[in-house]
Amino acid sequence: MQDPKFVIGMEFGSDDVFRNAIRAHAVKNRRAVRFKKNDPNRIRAICEKEGSKWFVYGSWLNDKRTFKIKSMGDEHTCAMTFTNKFVNSKMIANKYVN
């Protein structure tokens, strides 16, 4: 997922795939995103900038095989940032391994 577009009801194969999609969104759109709730059953990512209404909340479905977006606010009201904590050697290696 190079440039994920999130919608409510979108399903992912695992919570790691969901986290990676959020990281890809943050890097691609130059936004400061952090994981607020991060436990084995649910993940909530929010924009770090004050006053921004962007967030994504996902949790496991009953079958524990599918991770689904349950709610979200799709509006970034903040400015872009040129420093991103998700851009690191691991992300660069995964992107350019081929």
Results as ranks from 00 to 15, higher is better:
84 N>W: 05
58 G>E: 05
79 A>W: 00
87 V>M: 11
29 N>Y: 13
59 S>V: 03
19 R>D: 04
53 K>V: 02
72 M>I: 01
19 R>L: 11
28 K>A: 14
72 M>Q: 06
25 H>P: 01
66 T>S: 07
23 R>G: 01
60 W>Y: 13
57 Y>M: 08
40 P>V: 03
2 Q>D: 15
90 K>R: 14
18 F>Q: 01
14 S>K: 00
20 N>M: 00
75 E>K: 13
5 K>L: 14
50 E>S: 13
4 P>G: 03
2 Q>A: 14
44 R>A: 06
16 D>P: 00
46 I>E: 14
82 F>A: 07
75 E>Y: 12
16 D>S: 12
47 C>N: 11
43 I>T: 12
12 F>N: 02
21 A>W: 05
1 M>L: 08
41 N>L: 14
28 K>Q: 12
91 M>A: 15
3 D>G: 09
46 I>K: 10
63 D>S: 08
95 K>D: 02
83 T>P: 02
20 N>P: 00
55 F>M: 10
19 R>E: 09
59 S>P: 01
71 S>H: 12
79 A>E: 07
79 A>G: 06
12 F>C: 03
82 F>S: 03
58 G>V: 04
94 N>W: 07
66 T>Q: 04
32 A>M: 06
94 N>E: 12
15 D>S: 12
39 D>E: 09
67 F>E: 01
84 N>D: 08
45 A>W: 04
77 T>F: 00
62 N>L: 11
27 V>N: 04
68 K>C: 11
95 K>M: 13
43 I>P: 02
64 K>P: 00
88 N>M: 05
22 I>G: 01
86 F>N: 08
69 I>W: 05
86 F>D: 01
57 Y>G: 01
60 W>N: 08
34 R>H: 13
84 N>M: 01
53 K>M: 07
71 S>M: 07
92 I>D: 10
71 S>K: 12
93 A>Q: 11
40 P>R: 05
80 M>S: 13
89 S>L: 12
29 N>S: 06
94 N>T: 08
30 R>D: 09
80 M>V: 06
68 K>M: 13
87 V>P: 03
25 H>E: 06
60 W>P: 06
59 S>D: 10
66 T>D: 02
60 W>F: 09
35 F>C: 06
17 V>F: 00
97 V>P: 00
16 D>E: 12
54 W>N: 01
22 I>F: 02
36 K>W: 13
31 R>V: 06
36 K>I: 11
81 T>D: 00
42 R>F: 02
1 M>V: 04
19 R>Y: 10
7 V>C: 04
10 M>L: 13
38 N>G: 10
72 M>V: 01
33 V>I: 15
39 D>S: 06
47 C>R: 04
56 V>D: 05
19 R>N: 01
52 S>W: 02
76 H>M: 08
85 K>L: 10
55 F>S: 10
55 F>W: 11
61 L>N: 08
60 W>H: 03
42 R>H: 14
74 D>G: 04
33 V>K: 05
35 F>H: 08
